[in-house]
Design a protein around this nucleic acid. Sequence first.
DNA 1: TTTCGCTTCAAACGAGCGTTTGAAATTCAA
DNA 2: TTGAATTTCAAACGCTCGTTTGAAGCGAAA
Lengths: 215, 215
Amino acid sequence: MSSLEQVRVVSRATETTRAALIKAATSVFAEFGYDGGSVRLITKRAMANQAAVNYHFGGKDGLYREVLIAATRAFEENAFLDAEELDALSPEDALRRYLRQFLLPLVKRDRVSRYLRIFAWESVQPSQVFSAFIAQSPPRIFRLADRVVRRFLPQDASAETITFAMLWLAQQPMFFVREAERLGQPPFSLTFDDDSLERLVDTLACLSLQGLAGV
Amino acid sequence: MSSLEQVRVVSRATETTRAALIKAATSVFAEFGYDGGSVRLITKRAMANQAAVNYHFGGKDGLYREVLIAATRAFEENAFLDAEELDALSPEDALRRYLRQFLLPLVKRDRVSRYLRIFAWESVQPSQVFSAFIAQSPPRIFRLADRVVRRFLPQDASAETITFAMLWLAQQPMFFVREAERLGQPPFSLTFDDDSLERLVDTLACLSLQGLAGV
DNA sequence: TTTCGCTTCAAACGAGCGTTTGAAATTCAA
DNA sequence: TTGAATTTCAAACGCTCGTTTGAAGCGAAA
């Protein structure tokens, strides 16, 4: 076998193509979701050949998995909300913090925002890749929502109630992230800047705060 | 022209096929959405020929439009919530009524439930057909949500706040309708019967009630 | 310079989709 | 019963999709 010598030699060109594909795939999947994002569009944006996806990642699945890995890593590496950080805040501040973080894609279009959009897509139509990917560990947004919700619910709350409340909270910001573009057009015509984002956080926090407090 | 004599003669066979197609399309679109529901599956369930869709409805678009028309009619014909009926109730009861109606698909699988599922799909990925269809009049779920929300908000609430709150309320039950099947599996394993539906209405109403009251 | 392994490329494959076609079957008025 | 209009049907068309293919290009070691 002598598999030890089988170390994969990776040239610079390879890394360039791989990175370009992952970057393009991230934006395409964020824009259209997994099903809606085509390999042809991804390779076009990455200025790579169609076959490159299969060569480097074994297929569309593999490329998407790579994007999900990058997204997970970005979230785990304190680039996003920290669970302990949430615990340190008051319940109300934790909720506001949670909402603001997840609503950021409305005004920013950076890397993390694209990851959030991908998760927003998955929260609607989970792909097989995503389901398999999170089978090992529940997605961070659910863990965080769970964390926040428990701060508000009594100790003796039933598991069902906790699940209801957790799902309910997790989807609060997702709706606006997912619908950002549609909300910008009539009959809503909502444009999001820093100020209106803050007002949305206020409104949502108020809605959710009062709601959670009342359960 | 003598167009008056041009009355379309419709045979019984035609009506049978048309009705079968519309019925099959309703269940297929409810199950998979507009994009996901294929003409082949619809015609298979209707035990009709593939070409029948184009012959009778001019295409997939036309068939879907027919389903939307039927759905709209069912909702308008007092088969569903009545706006005046909502006004007659107390704000709290109106909210509960609203939630219960929209959560019914979780336990029932009747005609109206299928229509609601279709709207749940459209609330996520609006098809061109749907967008064009509702361009004339806003969908009933938004009008109803608007009605309920205004009962809770102060007179001087800004249009933006009303829009936020309305969108927020409209999507509350949709999430559970859309995700019914996924919630039935681990790690959630929620099964919905009359009792758990009532508990979900309770929880959601409580969350939303307190939320709306606090804005 | 030659050779070998890795990477890129244009082209095509096969499957699924909505739709079209033209003939066969059916319906219904004359 | 006849004949024209309507409806059904199997087959195929044209398109997009993810994927495969096999040759061409490339860079580094021999």
